[in-house]
């Protein structure tokens, strides 16, 4: 049994407070959905849990089975058992999925011989074309293929807790179903605990949450069961004080290759 405990988490980006005392506990086998209006801090939560540069944790704790997650560099958080399925999976030219996961397995002293087989098995389970396994990561993949790729990695890495940030975006109905079934299966097969971050109810009709939380202004302001998600779908987030303006993600200064000839 694993347990991710987030207590009083406060974080800011570029000096702007975004998370303002967030509490959440996720255990093995549970599916939690965090919903909320744009700018509520949903993506920030996922990034802060993995230690993405550009955010500052200003208060609170995050532990995974008692270990202080916030004290670890990102790659060690992954080995501790946290997985982040990203909203916008990054294209990495020239680096294949096999190479990346091979390096991850190496770092964890896992047997890389099992990797190729695992990749094929997982690809088949979610209908991910095998040809993408040896191609550059996410390069020239459609939005849906990128999300299948994220799900495939979830299957191969077998984390304790998965944070799935807007997993449904870019997926058609069939793909959404396959991916959801794969995640749900993991909750039973390996006891995966899931934190689904989503704006809409669409994903939750396939991936049934045990608990639904509303995140607004950096805090969990309401919790309930799946009925809450359905209710939000009808009423929107107005009742939870839709924030005035979306808080900008921190800029990643060199993300897109800046013309910088005067360095």
């Amino acid at each position: 049994m694993s347990e991710l405990i987030i207590e009083g988490l406060e974080a800011s980006a570029a000096g702007n407070p975004i998370l303002r005392g967030l509490d959440l506990t996720i255990r093995s086998g549970e599916v939690h959905a965090v919903m909320g209006p744009n700018g509520a801090g949903k993506s920030t939560l996922s990034h802060v849990l993995l230690g993405k540069p550009g955010y500052e944790v200003t208060g609170g704790t995050v532990t995974l089975d008692g270990e202080d997650l916030l004290a670890m560099p990102t790659w060690q958080r992954a080995h501790a058992g946290i997985f982040l399925g990203m909203q916008y999976p990054t294209e990495v030219p020239g680096v294949s999925l096999q190479e990346m996961l091979g390096a991850s397995f190496d770092a964890a002293d896992k047997d890389t011989a099992a990797l190729d087989e695992a990749l094929l098995v997982e690809a088949a389970r979610i209908g991910f074309d095998e040809k993408f396994l040896s191609r550059a990561l996410n390069v020239d993949l459609s939005g849906g293929e990128k999300k299948r790729n994220e799900t495939l990695q979830l299957g191969v890495l077998q984390p304790k807790i998965a944070i799935l940030d807007e997993l449904d975006s870019g997926l058609d109905v069939d793909a959404l179903r396959m991916v959801s079934q794969r995640v749900e299966a993991a909750t039973e097969e390996t006891g995966l605990g899931v934190l689904v971050i989503t704006h809409y109810n669409r994903l939750l009709t396939e991936l049934k949450p045990d608990h639904v939380h509303v995140l607004a202004k950096g805090q969990i302001v309401a919790s309930g069961d799946a009925a809450l998600a359905a209710e939000l779908e009808d009423t929107g987030y107005g009742a939870y004080g839709e924030v005035e303006a979306a808080v900008a993600e921190p800029a990643t200064p060199f993300a897109s290759g800046v013309l910088d000839v005067f360095e």
């Binding site: 992954a78 390096a103 991850s104």
Partner: peptide
């Protein structure tokens, strides 16, 4: 273009458990 190793690419690899030195190596070779 002249730029450092892309921070998003780096984060992606780190988040999948690739240690920083190995990640940079993979990205540059890639």
């Amino acid at each position: 273009t002249v730029s450092p190793v892309d921070t998003d690419q780096r984060f992606y690899l780190h988040a999948r458990g690739v240690p920083p030195t190995v990640a940079d190596r993979l990205i540059v070779a890639g």
